[in-house]
């Protein structure tokens, strides 16, 4: 140990030189303003990878669709699961003059409430949440994810033969909790004698834990599973191995298992993004909560084309979806 320390000390001077040289090379920064013909500059900060087949990807896909309708320029920082890194990116985008900055993660709200007041001309949006901190430049978006949960749950109730269904959840928050509560209610709406085991694994990212949770559900007799967030790729692997059916949420999860994924509830943020862009184009700031549901197209169902879903079950699901859309069916959540 001592020899190591001594020689380390002797060799450390180049580090100082490099730092000095680089510090000297610092240069000035630039500012930009937007004129009518310029594209709308939208920045997004997302917690996981842009192609996570879950929460982050749902927003990336929506931004791509938005690009077909509006003249926009998009910059994405993904994989910022550390909240402070996301905060730095959010402030950085606002500083760089982006028109709209999306803080795509409910855990970013604490930082955003401190950053947004410093940039009154920037439009901020964050979610899922229902809190704008009373600021006119903050939009918050949320989804009635309990609706798709309810539809998935109803289908799951029709498809289970063992009478036991398992749910692999990450952390009991926001749209995730709503989805799972809706799912449980959906199952009960068909057959209240079915057991639904819910397991929150306390992690958004631990796929190994998710896999074991799925395994535990199957060992407890579950023959249908559902789950939310990017860690579910672990659970779907186990479901595939055991031929257990899977219901997805957030993004279309069919690629995770063509033979077992029945259907997924998809978040389309197009509706909320569209409203914010329209406000921006009109030069207004009406910071508010925008909620997506099946009636405004913010939520849709995606059925796996390769899964031979029983026609009766599909019909029942469509009926539930229609009922939810026109308001005749309530999930009973909130």
């Amino acid at each position: 140990m001592t020899t190591l320390i001594r020689s380390l000390i002797r060799r450390s001077w180049p580090v100082g030189l490099v730092v000095l040289a680089l510090a000297v090379s610092a240069c000035a920064e630039e500012e930009t303003g937007r004129s009518a013909d310029d594209p709308i500059r939208i920045a997004m900060v997302g917690p996981s990878a842009s192609n996570d087949l879950a929460f982050t990807q749902s927003m990336v896909d929506s931004l791509n669709r938005l690009g077909q309708e509006y003249n926009i320029e998009v910059d994405i920082t993904d994989g910022t699961f550390v909240i402070e890194d996301a905060a730095v990116a959010i402030r950085g985008y606002a500083e760089d003059g982006f028109d709209i900055v999306l803080a795509h993660g409910s855990q970013f709200g604490g930082s955003l409430s401190e950053i947004a007041p410093d940039y009154p001309d920037t439009y901020f949006a964050w979610g899922t949440s229902r809190d704008t901190f009373g600021l006119s430049n903050v939009y918050s978006y949320s989804v009635k994810s309990d609706q798709g949960g309810y539809i998935n749950g109803a289908m799951a109730a029709h498809l289970t033969e063992s009478g036991t269904i398992g749910v692999v959840g990450p952390i009991e928050v926001g749209d995730i909790k709503a989805y799972i509560d809706g799912f449980v209610a959906g199952v009960a709406s068909v057959d209240s004698s079915i057991t639904v085991n819910v397991n929150y694994i306390d992690s958004f990212s631990d796929v190994a834990l998710a896999a074991e949770a799925a395994q535990a559900h199957i060992e407890a007799g579950a023959d249908v599973l559902t789950g939310v967030s990017q860690m579910t790729v672990g659970a779907t692997g186990v479901a595939r191995e055991h031929g257990v059916l899977w219901f997805g949420s957030q993004s279309d999860q069919t690629p995770l298992g063509e033979e077992i994924v029945v259907a997924s509830q998809i978040y389309n943020w197009d509706y909320q993004l569209g409203q914010i862009v329209e406000d921006l184009l009109a030069g207004e700031q009406n910071g508010r909560v925008i909620t997506a549901d099946f009636s405004n197209g913010g939520l849709t169902m995606a059925y796996n084309p390769n899964f031979a879903l029983d026609a009766d079950v599909r019909e029942a699901a469509d009926a539930v979806q229609a009922g939810i859309t026109d308001g005749s069916i309530s999930t009973g959540i909130e």
């Binding site: 990212s205 796929v207 190994a208 834990l209 896999a211 672990g234 692997g237 191995e241």
Partner: peptide, 14 residues
């Protein structure tokens, strides 16, 4: 671990 799970991700071993 990877073959049991049938998947890889960042920091899989945790």
């Amino acid at each position: 671990l990877a073959l049991e799970l049938g998947i890889f991700q960042q920091n899989l071993t945790n």
